[in-house]
């Protein structure tokens, strides 16, 4: 898939959607703040030899799928959980919502 370069992490507020929070059930998307691609969870090792390169890729290069996209949403007007939401960018269908902390642990993030 083609990588696109993002200029920065943009926080936007989307309306007229519902996110089915794993702990709280359906909540209006207006309660959430959007961050971006869920790959932001995978912060590289800063001590690696080519850290500059891996951090550049981590921060600036993203997939831009027409279809299912895993993305980070923050329940700012709610329980302050970060969520990984799998949303279809063509239909807005949300097929999965996970606690980002669980995703991060599963991905090997620890302390």
């Amino acid at each position: 898939m083609k990588k696109v370069k993002v200029l920065n992490q943009i926080c936007i507020e989307l309306h007229h959607m519902i996110i089915n929070h794993p702990l709280l059930g359906p909540r209006d998307a207006a309660e959430f703040v959007y961050l971006g691609d869920a790959s932001l969870i995978n912060r590289p090792d800063a001590s690696g030899d080519n850290a500059a390169q891996t951090f550049y890729q981590y921060l600036y290069l993203r997939d831009n799928p027409a279809g299912e996209h895993k993305e980070l949403w923050y329940h700012e007007q709610g329980d302050r959980s970060w969520l990984v939401v799998t949303r279809n960018t063509l239909t807005h269908e949300i097929s999965n919502v996970e606690m980002a902390r669980d995703v991060a642990r599963a991905a090997g993030g620890s302390t």
């Binding site: 970060w82 606690m99 902390r101 991060a104 302390t111």
Partner: peptide, 19 residues
Amino acid sequence: AVSVFRHMEFCRQCLWPDM
């Protein structure tokens, strides 16, 4: 104030979940 809190929650939950 709000965005720093959000950022720190991101760090705590998504980057270093076991801290």
